[in-house]
Design a protein around this nucleic acid. Structure first.
Lengths: 170, 170
DNA sequence: CTTGGAATGTCAACAACACTGACATATGCT
DNA sequence: AGCATATGTCAGTGTTGTTGACATTCCAAG
């Protein structure tokens, strides 16, 4: 299973980047980088009564305005009870508006209010600033590789969701 | 602040990869990929009485055997109370051994027992398998870019910790 | 038109994991 | 002796996730 020194003498090709040690460094890089990735929005949210879950909800509602609860559920990968707790507070606080569907009145379509958009801006500005610095420092080729590896790391369903959002965006 | 189409007509260099849209795709890629990154170990841990925090502790004790509690605290970036809860159960269950320091008897040095090593293997095998597939599909250049961007995304302190671990490993 | 199922909302209980604050113990250093 | 350090522990709290159960609303098929 764990082959120790994977492909150290492997058909002439240099597969040294698949060593267990290289994989472990990749794992640790993901762990530390994700901490940085969430650090700035977390600091902003800490002052308010919100957390990371609120950030995620607001992000994807902004990304796909009018999305249904069920759709959001699939994107976020949590239970409806967990999402509902978050959505309820956002709606109560006037950051999110929930409109009953026209064709299917069971569905609720979610939109950000002005206040909601303001919060989304504030959070994603912070997160984008770090991402921009990282991208700029690393350069376009590195960014392309970054994206390639991340996409290969997703589950199939997540990848579909990701691509669907990506294509709808631009 | 948010420049909309960053660098769309910028000094001849093609900085299109720093567009807000590109950054947002990077953010979403991180989000979805991290879910995949933790999915396999999480599935294994769900059957046991352990969670992601136990995985992290076991991983880094395995990575740096004999590490002190304080050192682990810095690596994991949590409070001692939070870590202690996890360590206590791991020690009680015989997965981790805590030895009093020789030179400084206040310190506790942490080691994995045989059972602890077995669990670490099981968890990291699952996580490495996914990482290996992603690396293999993406190729060595993409992997290099992946690492470059992740490192640029870390906080300074985290980056120091990451490099120190990396260099100690091989 | 009734019935079944889908979409949503809500309640209760619980667990994992983080936090703060306070305090105890043992040890090291000056 | 006194202060700082390293660790452990207790109590309380908050966010986020889970299951399970149940109500409501509404579409669609028979």
């Amino acid at each position: 299973m764990t082959d120790g020194r994977a492909g150290s003498i492997h058909s002439g090709e240099t597969l040294l980047f698949l060593t267990d040690e290289q994989l472990r460094q990749g794992i640790e890089a993901m762990f530390f980088a994700y901490r940085g990735f969430t650090a700035d929005p977390d600091r902003i949210l800490a002052d308010m009564a919100y957390g990371r879950a609120h950030h995620r909800a607001v992000h994807f509602i902004n990304r796909a305005p009018g999305t249904t609860v069920n759709n959001l559920l699939n994107i976020l990968g949590v239970t409806k009870q967990s999402l509902n707790r978050v959505l309820r507070t956002l709606i109560e606080d006037g950051l999110v508006e929930s409109r009953i569907g026209k064709t299917d009145k069971r569905e609720r379509h979610l939109f950000l209010t002005q206040d909601g958009k303001a919060l989304e801006q504030k959070l994603s500005d912070a997160q984008r600033a770090r991402m921009r610095m990282a991208f700029r420092d690393a350069g376009p080729e590195a960014v392309a590789g970054f994206r390639t590896v991340l996409e290969a790391m997703m589950d199939r369903e997540m990848h579909h969701t990701y691509v669907r959002l990506k294509d709808s965006g631009s």
